[in-house]
Amino acid sequence: PSAPPAGLPVPALVLEFVRCEQDELQVRSKISAHLGHLQQEQSSRSAKAEPLSTFGLMCHVADQTLFSIVEWARSCTFFKELKVGDQMKLLHNCWSELLVLDYISRQVHHGKQDSILLITGQEVELGSLLAQAGVTLAELVQGGQELVQHLQELQLDRREIACFKYLILFNPDVKLLENQVYVESVYEQVSGALLEYTLCVYPQHVERFSQLLLRLPELRALSVQAEDYLCYKHLSGEVPCNNLLIEMLHAKRA
C-alpha cells in the first residue's frame, strides 16, 4: 500500500524504521564485489580452483549479509543507546533469525516457488539444490517455503518487514542484559507501532497484527534449525572460512 486511508497517518516510528533500511542495491553490489574478489583470489592461488559450490556460495552470502545486518543495527537509534555488551548479546541471540528473515522476505517478493533468489541477484534452482541435499536441508527448505507462502498470503509489506527486524533484534527474552528494561520498552513500542500500522493501513483485516506475530515463532524455529544445520556442516569442515558467520556460531554454542 502506498498510503493509508485519509486521516490515519502511518506511525512515525514505522516511517523511521523504513528510513533506516539499507539500500538493497548498495548491499547487493558490495556483496557481489566481495564474492568476485574472493573467486579471483581463489583462482589465482590455484590453477585448478574448483568453482564455489551452491552451499559454499550461500555461506559466503550469509557471512556478508551478517556484516550488513551489524551495520544496519548500528545505524538504529534504539540500538545506539545500548552498551556494546548488550548489543552483542542481542545480536548473538538473533543473527540467524535476521538472516532467515532476509532470505524469507526476498522470497516473498521473488514469488517463484522453484528457485531461491540471493541478495546478489543470483537464482539458485531448488531442484538442483535438493537433489544434493540430505533430509535436514530438505526439511529446512520446505519449512522456509511454507513460511514464505503464509507471508505471501498475508501480502506482508516492507514496512511490516522493517518492524519485524526490530521485534527480532529487541527480543525481551534475552537474559542478563545490563539494560533489560530498555530492551523490553523498545519491544513494546515497536509492537505498538506495528499494531497501529496494521489497523490504519489494513482496517478491514483486524486479525492481521496477531497473524503477523504468529509468524515470528515459526521464523525462530526455522532459524534454530538452520543454525543446527550450519553447526553440523561446520563441524564436518564443510563451511568455508567465513569470519563473522563462524564467530556467531561459536558464540551461541559456547
Binding site: V70, E71, V84, M88, L244, E247, M248, A251, A254
Partner: peptide, 18 residues
C-alpha cells in the same frame, strides 16, 4: 570465549559507536 567475539566487538566498537 572472548576471542570468539572479537570481530563482532570490533564491528560494534569502531568509529563513533561508543
Amino acid at each position: 570465549k572472548k576471542k570468539d567475539n572479537a570481530l563482532l566487538r570490533y564491528l560494534l566498537d569502531k568509529d563513533d559507536n561508543t
